[in-house]
Amino acid sequence: MDAVLSLTRSRPGAGRLVPLLLIAAALGFLLLFLLLPLAAVFVEALRKGLGTYTAALVHPEAIAAIKLTLLVAAIAVPLNTVFGVAAAWAMTRFAFRGKALLGALIDLPFSVSPVVSGLIYVLLFGAQGWFGPWLLEHDIKLIFAVPGLVLATIFVTLPFVARELIPLMQSQGSDEEEAARVLGAGGWQIFFRVTLPNIKWALLYGVLLCNARAMGEFGAVSVVSGHIRGLTNTLPLHVEILYNDYNYAGAFAVASLLAFLALITLGLKTFLEWRYGSELAAKAPRGH
């Protein structure tokens, strides 16, 4: 159905007042609750001038936080991408017992509080955890160190790619791949020549959302980081530290970087939906 219906045609004979009031109320809510906080980030970031703004961004601790954020995302996102593709392949190309349970398990991290997501790794690898004594003996540090940040980030972003691919590959069916098989193609050949071209935009879409969450995650990494400046602080944690130091201009300057990232993500996401909407699967409700 054509989603855009002109206002005058929306209800022949009916007044225009009700639609106008509804539009005004909806846009008012969006402006007040969504746009205003976004605007506040940039205004507060520049409140003390451009000099303070750039100084906060080139500060060694900020640079270290940027590098660490990029590093964590560079490990977590590819791992979850491969996992998402494998999960979608297993879930949509074969029938097996317990498939529904597996699907629920893949979605599980979305319904776990970020703090609990961090907590479970502390209980596993922390000094008092299951593997704590063994790790201590071998001088391996996972919690309050970079590996802990990576683990927590993998956990919270685990479902993103799988969630985009599973409904799409389900609706596409496996006819093309089976045809390729009959014609003598090998497994990897089928994947790279048939499957991948069919799912590439949905894959990109999932990676985009996965990356945004990986770079912006706060609660889970906060629990496992130990907040060691310059060593285990990602960008969101650096925002918190500056904020708690009453360095508001600095906190908002670093926050504006993350807000830029969010805007770029939204822009690319909207572009993908607009340009390749039909290749991103039937619009299913999505959330995280």
């Binding site: 609660g219 960008l235 969101p236 926050a255 990232l261």
Partner: peptide
């Protein structure tokens, strides 16, 4: 709200 990091 999905895209903006929660700390921000």
């Amino acid at each position: 709200p999905f895209a903006l990091p929660t700390a921000v």
